[in-house]
Amino acid sequence: MDIVQELLAGSPRALSRAITAIENEYEEAFSIMQKLYPHTGKAHVIGITGPPGAGKSTLTDKLAKKYRENGKTVGIIAVDPTSPFSGGAILGDRIRMNELTMDPGVFIRSMGTRGSLGGLSLKTSDAAKIMDAAGKEIIFIETVGVGQSEVDIVKAADTTIVVLVPGLGDDIQAIKAGILEIGDLFVINKADRDGVERLNTELEMMLDLNQNKVKWRPAVNRTIASRGVGIDELMEKIEEHRTYLQESGELALRRTQRTRDELLALLEEQISRRVTEKMRASGELDFLVASIEQRRQDPYSVVAALLDAYLI
């Protein structure tokens, strides 16, 4: 059996290997995704984002357990930042999810952000598709919400949960940085701490201001993830959002948009890869750079000529 057949037959090892193939950009990744694609599109993808240490992994762990109690299979993709200095990373989200590891209905994979951030959102969405094809019904993607790249990652989600905590001082800053727009649901975690009321009021005010722009008014939920408080209510809201997406036609709209975005991103990536590979192989890259530097050619004409030469 090849890796795709094994994966479809339920092998966790094949699932694991397939994700490695896309992460490491192995040659066979493309054909794996080609064969898996017809088996995707069934899972509900939940993005969980928020500042470092907000309790995203703890919350994911608790939500995953609830979905398991309801008989759903679960996949979890936990993304942590790669060190820009060494290229290495410490991926520590699993610490909060150890109890899920032995459950055969759960598959957890940690990913570093590695090099290209644009590449990362393609890779996380491919990893989610691989888990989807492997039969995982609910897929969580956890990312630290600090920049645009993370926002791009959660675009792969059907329901995005923004996790905030009271008393950080920069709450409002985080909200301003575009996070308000991406949240389908908001969670104030660590509700056992001071400042919950203030943050809740501020959030509700901002969401009210935003209300005329959107059809779905995000709910603000309070949780104490470490003690399992508020998880049932949060899961109800997730299911409410899922129903809303289906009944309003929003799900179909979002998926069309996503299919379009992904097709264009893939096209861009493949064009760039093919042309660069050929340039490297022919050794003309260095020659062209030198000739542009000496103003014998300009980069615009060079690119036009390269595309003519290599794309047809």
């Binding site: 290495g88 990373a89 991926l91 699993r94 610490i95």
Partner: peptide, 15 residues
């Protein structure tokens, strides 16, 4: 774990 990260490895830390 930290030394391995600084060497460029991805370290999955399970505690």
């Amino acid at each position: 774990a930290r030394a391995l990260r600084d060497a460029g490895f991805e370290v999955i830390y399970t505690g």
